[in-house]
Amino acid sequence: MEVRTIKVFTTVDNINLHTQVVDMSMTYGQQFGPTYLDGADVTKIKPHNSHEGKTFYVLPNDDTLRVEAFEYYHTTDPSFLGRYMSALNHTKKWKYPQVNGLTSIKWADNNCYLATALLTLQQIELKFNPPALQDAYYRARAGEAANFCALILAYCNKTVGELGDVRETMSYLFQHANLDSCKRVLNVVCKTCGQQQTTLKGVEAVMYMGTLSYEQFKKGVQIPCTCGKQATKYLVQQESPFVMMSAPPAQYELKHGTFTCASEYTGNYQCGHYKHITSKETLYCIDGALLTKSSEYKGPITDVFYKENSYTTTIK
């Protein structure tokens, strides 16, 4: 009895394709271990004539594949690729409408935090270190965002349907971005203890939790000093293409032309909904596939993004 075979390709990165001759009487799992086709788990399936010449994702289970996976995804987590594939199996079914010149995501599976993050990423200057993220990001900007969303979920250790947080998501993504040249110098002034300067680099240099107003941050924000008295913390120097200011959701007025974009969060910790506000020729609110415009805006804002380049204080 002759062994019926077909020729397929296996890959971990969709760049390096490895030619395989597979036995049609055995499952993919018996031949390769966990195997995925377009995100779908085909591990328990036997090869079919229609699979001839198709590319299958496999887990990096030998040295060659491990090197290829690390170079593309910059992670050695053995569960990463499987999590990416199972997320992709959902995100490829989502709709990605162009809204006001940006790629958004039609609401499904509690994905409003991903839509808000995706919209924000198209408006701030950011370059990702893992080629996987950078490639998928370019495709997302062009309207094909399924891979990018699935990668975000995998890097953030999230599953489809789980509630997510924009600030946490951005923080994970910033860790995989090139923020080497970003720098922030802060000064804390206390009447009792004097003053202390701190220099922050990388992710810490672009994120701040405690106030939404970048102007206020430049002037000074009140913080408790270690001595128990009130101290003032203010920005001395900022070198970065953008800054992200966050605070627990509270009524906040966004003035046209003073910011790049913002995240609105309605609801409580267990259950809520994100919308995205962007400042173009007027203010726009993007909620999944829905767009509304207004000249002014007041609502429960939790993150505001500002364009920056270089700032030095005039406070002496």
Rank of each mutant, 00 (worst) to 15 (best):
E2N: 14
E2L: 10
K7C: 07
T11E: 00
V12G: 07
I15F: 13
N16S: 05
H18T: 14
T19L: 13
V21L: 13
V22E: 01
V22L: 11
Q30F: 04
Q31P: 01
Q31K: 08
Q31H: 15
F32L: 08
Y36P: 00
D38V: 08
G39A: 14
V42K: 09
V42Q: 08
P47A: 08
P47E: 02
H48T: 08
H48P: 09
N49R: 08
N49D: 14
S50F: 13
T55M: 08
N61K: 11
N61C: 13
N61T: 13
D62Y: 00
D63Y: 09
F70R: 11
F70D: 14
E71F: 03
Y72Q: 14
Y73E: 01
Y73V: 02
Y73S: 00
T75M: 09
P78R: 06
F80G: 00
L81E: 01
L81A: 06
L81Q: 03
R83S: 07
R83Q: 07
Y84Q: 07
S86H: 12
S86Q: 12
K92Y: 06
K92M: 08
W94A: 00
Y96Q: 04
Q98M: 14
V99P: 07
N100P: 02
L102A: 05
N110W: 04
N111K: 01
C112R: 07
Y113K: 02
L114Y: 01
T116L: 03
T116Y: 03
T116D: 09
L118E: 04
T120G: 08
T120C: 13
L121Y: 05
Q123V: 03
E125R: 09
E125D: 00
K127H: 10
N129R: 13
P130T: 14
Q134F: 04
A136E: 09
A136D: 00
Y137I: 06
Y137W: 04
G143S: 03
G143C: 00
G143H: 02
A146D: 08
N147P: 10
N147K: 12
C149K: 02
A150Q: 02
L151E: 03
L151S: 01
L151W: 02
L153H: 02
L153P: 01
L153A: 01
Y155L: 01
Y155H: 00
C156N: 07
N157E: 08
T159I: 08
T159C: 15
G161L: 00
G161I: 00
G161F: 05
L163H: 09
G164E: 00
D165W: 08
D165E: 15
D165F: 02
V166W: 05
R167E: 07
E168A: 13
T169K: 03
T169Q: 04
S171T: 11
L173S: 00
F174D: 00
Q175L: 02
Q175E: 11
Q175W: 02
Q175I: 04
H176R: 10
N178W: 06
L179Y: 04
D180P: 04
D180L: 09
C182H: 12
K183N: 08
R184E: 03
L186C: 09
V188C: 07
C193R: 06
G194C: 04
G194V: 01
Q195M: 15
Q196L: 10
Q197L: 11
G202T: 01
G202D: 08
A205L: 03
A205W: 01
A205N: 05
V206T: 02
M207S: 10
M209N: 15
M209R: 06
L212E: 07
Y214F: 09
F217W: 09
K219C: 05
G220L: 03
G220A: 03
V221N: 06
T226Y: 04
C227S: 04
K229T: 10
Q230R: 09
A231K: 10
T232Y: 06
K233Y: 10
Y234G: 05
V236D: 08
Q237S: 11
S240K: 06
V243Q: 08
M244T: 05
M245T: 05
S246L: 03
S246D: 06
A247R: 04
P248R: 14
A250K: 15
Q251A: 12
Q251W: 04
Q251K: 12
Y252S: 00
E253C: 09
E253D: 08
E253I: 13
H256D: 04
G257M: 05
T258R: 10
T260R: 05
A262K: 05
S263M: 08
E264W: 03
T266L: 07
T266R: 10
G267E: 15
G267C: 13
Q270C: 14
C271I: 10
H273P: 02
Y274A: 08
Y274E: 04
T278Q: 10
S279L: 02
E281D: 09
T282P: 04
Y284D: 07
D287T: 01
G288H: 01
G288F: 02
L290K: 08
L290H: 14
L291W: 14
L291F: 14
T292I: 10
K293R: 12
K293N: 11
K298E: 10
K298W: 11
K298Y: 11
P300C: 11
I301Y: 03
D303T: 12
F305P: 08
Y306S: 05
E308L: 14
Y311A: 12
T312K: 13
T313C: 13
T314N: 12
K316F: 14
K316R: 14
